[in-house]
Design a protein around this nucleic acid. Structure first.
Ligand SMILES: [Zn+2]
Ligand SMILES: [Zn+2]
Lengths: 320, 320
DNA sequence: CAATCAGGTCACAAGGTCAC
DNA sequence: GTGACCTTGTGACCTGATTG
C-alpha cells in the first residue's frame, strides 16, 4: 500500500511540477511556450485522439493509449473496428511480432522486422502527429492562451504521465533550491534510494544538469544542480535544460534510444537486435513503470516504442 | 501485520511530509500551494476513498492498489465486511490472499492477477480521468487560471494514481524519523533469526555491514556490524550501510527479492509465482526465525512481506 | 578534436529445475 | 514443499564508429 500511495504522491507531485513548469513558462515566455505547447499539443493530440477513439468504444483503451499506447491500442484495434488512425491493431493476440514471422499474418501490420519495427512505429507517430496537428490547429484557432497549453499539458499528462516524466523532474533532483520542497517530500518518502532524488520546480529558475547515478540501473540517471539555466522546455520528449539538450542530452542523460525512462538501452537493444518476440501473459495492458518494468517484456517493449524509442534516433534529437 | 503497520507509518510520514511541503510552499507561494494541496488532497482522497469504498464493499481492493498488501487485504475483504479504517484486519482468518484468485469475486477489484493488478487500476483510473476530463473541461470554460491547472492535475492524478507510481518513498528511507519507527518494528519482528541478524536503528549511528552467513540456508544472510559508518538508510528493504548499498549490496547480501533475512528466494518466489494462499494454523503470530522458518508458511510469507521483499526490487531501488 | 551514441561485455539477479 | 544449482535476462560500463 505504501508503495502505491507513495508512488501516487510522487506522481502527483511530478504532474503538478509539470503543470507548474508549463504555467511558469507561459508566464515567462510567449515564444517558448509555443514549442512546449506544440509538444504538449502533440502529446495531447495523441491522447485526445486515443481518447476519442476509445470513447467511441472503450475508454480503457484510451488510458492505455495514453501511456504507451500504440501497442495497447493495436491490441484493442483488433476487436474493435472503430479504431481510427492507429495502425497497430494487428497485435490483438497480445503477441508482439516485432518482427514479422512468416506465419503471423495478422501481425504483419505491426512489425515486420527489427528494421521495419523502427519504421512502422515512426509511421504511426506520423499519423498521430498529423492528427495532432489538426487537433492542435483547431485548438489554436479556438484559443491560443495559456489555458490551452495547460490543458494540453494536463491532457498530455493524463494521457501518458510517464512519458512526460523527465530526467529532471523525475530523476533529477539534487537542486537545493528546487529540491528543497520536493526533496523534502520525496526525501521523506524515498529517503535513501539515491538521496538526491527530487523534482525540480519551474519556479526555481535554477535548472538541473544531468549527471549519471553511479549505482543507477540501466539508463537511469539523476540530475544534479550544476547548470543554473532555467528549464528550456521540452526537448526530445522530455523537459530538460537547454544545456543538456544541446550538449548531448542523450549522452549525459543516457537518452539512448531517445528515452531515459524505465527503458534501458539493454532491453530495447536486445529486443531489436535479436528480434525477440515477446508475449504478454495477460491482456497486453500491463502497467509498465520503473518499479515493475521487468514483469512483462511485451508491454515494456510496447512502452518503449510508444515512448518513441527507435534505433534510428541517433543524432536526430537535434533536429526536432 | 508488521508490514502493514510499517507501511501505514511510512504512509503517514509521507503524508505529513507532503503536508509540510505544501504548507511551506503555501507560505512561499500562493499559487503553488494549490497544486500541492490538490495533489495531497488527491492522495488523501484516494486513501480515504479507498477506505470508505472498502468499508462499503471491500476495503481490500483499495488497499491493494496501494501496494503489496493488496493481496493480504484482498483475502480479508472476502470474509469481512466491517473493516474499519485499518484495512488489515482482514487477516483475521489468517489466510493470505496475496494474489487474487479468480474464484474470489469479492476481491476482483483488487488484483485479478499479479499482472492484471497493474492493468485494472488503470481502468479505474480511466474512469476517473473521464470524469476529470469533464470536470476539467467545464473548469477551463469557466476560468483559465492556475486553479484550473491544479484541478486538471488533480484529476489526472486521481485518474491513474498507479501510473505515476514511484518507488522512492517506499524503499528510500534513510530518514531517521521514519526509519526509527519502521526499523523498530522490523527489528522486533526479525530479531534473532541468525543472532547476528539485526536491523540498524536510525538512532544507533553504527551501521551494519553485510556478510553472508556461511551456514545460512538459501539466500539467508545476516548483517554484522563491521563498518562504522552511519547507517545510510534503507536499502533494498533493510537498513544497511552505504557501502553495502553502493557496492552491490544485492550481491553481498544476496538480497534477492529485496530481503536478506531468513527468507530464501525459493519460498518467496514460489509464493508469488504460484500465488499460493497460506493459512496459519495458529493465531497468525507465529515467531518466524531461521530455525523454524518452515513451520508456518503464512507467517513466513507475512514476514517476508514485512521485510520488504518484492518481486520488483531487483536493480530497482537505485532507480527511484 | 570533441561530442555523441550504437553496440559489446559481463557481473548480477530473476527464475527454472530437481534431488531431497 | 524446500532450496542448491543452473540458465537466462538485465543493465552498468566500456569501446569504437560517426558526426560536426
Ligand atoms: Zn503485459
Ligand atoms: Zn503462523
Amino acid at each position: 500500500m505504501d508503495v502505491y500511495q507513495i508512488e501516487l504522491e510522487a506522481q502527483s507531485q511530478i504532474r503538478s511540477q509539470l503543470l507548474i513548469d508549463t504555467a511558469v513558462k507561459n508566464l515567462g515566455q510567449t515564444t517558448r511556450p509555443q514549442q512546449q505547447a506544440e509538444q504538449q499539443q502533440q502529446l495531447d493530440d495523441c491522447n485526445i485522439a486515443d481518447l476519442e477513439a476509445d470513447v467511441a468504444q472503450q475508454q480503457l483503451e484510451d488510458s492505455e493509449s495514453e501511456e504507451d499506447d500504440n501497442e495497447d491500442e493495436d491490441i484493442d484495434a483488433e476487436e474493435d473496428e472503430a479504431l481510427p488512425e492507429v495502425s497497430f491493431d494487428a497485435n490483438s493476440d497480445f503477441n508482439l511480432h516485432f518482427f514479422d514471422t512468416p506465419e503471423d499474418s495478422s501481425t504483419q501490420g505491426a512489425y515486420s522486422e527489427a528494421g521495419s519495427l523502427d519504421s512502422e512505429p515512426e509511421e504511426q507517430q506520423f499519423d498521430l502527429e498529423q492528427q495532432q496537428l489538426n487537433s492542435t490547429a483547431a485548438a489554436a484557432a479556438a484559443t491560443v492562451g495559456i489555458a490551452q497549453e495547460l490543458q494540453h499539458c494536463l491532457s498530455a499528462i493524463e494521457a501518458d504521465p510517464l512519458q512526460l516524466l523527465q530526467c529532471d523532474s523525475y530523476y533529477g533532483a539534487n537542486n537545493t533550491a528546487t529540491t528543497a520542497i520536493v526533496a523534502s517530500a520525496t526525501a521523506a518518502a524515498a529517503a535513501g534510494a539515491t538521496g538526491s532524488v527530487a523534482v525540480a520546480t519551474a519556479a526555481t529558475a535554477a535548472h538541473l544538469s544531468c549527471t549519471p547515478l553511479s549505482n543507477g540501473g540501466g539508463a537511469l540517471y539523476a540530475i544534479s544542480s550544476v547548470h543554473q539555466f532555467g528549464p528550456s522546455g521540452y526537448h526530445y520528449g522530455v523537459t530538460s535544460c537547454e544545456g543538456c539538450k544541446v550538449s548531448s542530452a542523450c549522452n549525459y542523460l543516457s537518452l539512448q534510444f531517445n528515452s531515459n525512462i524505465y527503458f534501458s538501452q539493454g532491453f530495447f537493444r536486445r529486443s531489436i537486435q535479436k528480434q525477440i518476440e515477446y508475449r504478454c501473459l495477460r491482456d497486453g495492458k500491463c502497467l509498465v513503470i520503473r518499479l515493475n518494468r521487468n514483469r512483462c517484456q511485451y508491454c515494456r517493449f510496447k512502452k518503449c516504442l510508444s515512448a518513441g524509442m527507435s534505433r534510428d534516433c541517433k543524432y536526430l534529437q537535434h533536429l526536432i
